[in-house]
Amino acid sequence: MKMLLELKNIAKKYDIPSGQGYTTVLKDISMQVSSGESIAIVGPSGSGKSTLLNIMGALDKPSSGVVSLFGKNLAECDDTELSRIRNQEIGFIFQLHHLLPQCTVLENVLIPTIPLGLKKRDRDGEVQERAKKLLDRVGLGNHREYFPAQLSGGEMQRVAVVRALINKPKLVLADEPTGSLDKDSSENLGRLLVGMNKEEGTAFITVTHSFDFARLMEKAFKLQNGNLESYVI
């Protein structure tokens, strides 16, 4: 399997607001992720799971260490390149769906296609077809013209999943994707994500509190006291 992501000796520190020193969230973390893998990272609140995920997804920068994504050192990429990577190579799913209230379901899914600068024909054709298929796949084929306010929490999160996959990313990062959902919705979403991981062949990394959700992944790691350890659920 092809290696997608490599973390080498990653550390992250935050200054204390009063200016009295700093706090270390991540300490010397190294890991490798290959294509098609599904990984869960579990840990208590405040353990730095989201920080680690943000560093993997080029949303945040480590205090030290190297993040290589698809063989590229992210520290050497400028904002344009980082934006391109986030847009085309990575899909994000957040704990809160973060759907844009002003856009319909279909439009929300298509938001990440805007930076691609596609021609109108492509935008209206192939990409839209894919969006519709994916929405059908998650059971929202009839809700394409709905606005977020007309959806349930689980439905909104499914839209967020489709949005994450629209640009055929090689890596999908999910930050507590089931965190805001009830148990049933949470289970449904978990199965959907794993199923789509297989169908789309993407690598899938999620941070979660939910051991049930983590159990659906091929691998699991535990983040505690800034250290990442392999974890068997």
Binding site: T80, S83, N87, F92, I111, P115
Partner: peptide
């Protein structure tokens, strides 16, 4: 930004 829009965009 997370979805790949550059800062400028």
């Amino acid at each position: 930004r997370a979805l790949g829009f550059s800062r400028k965009a």
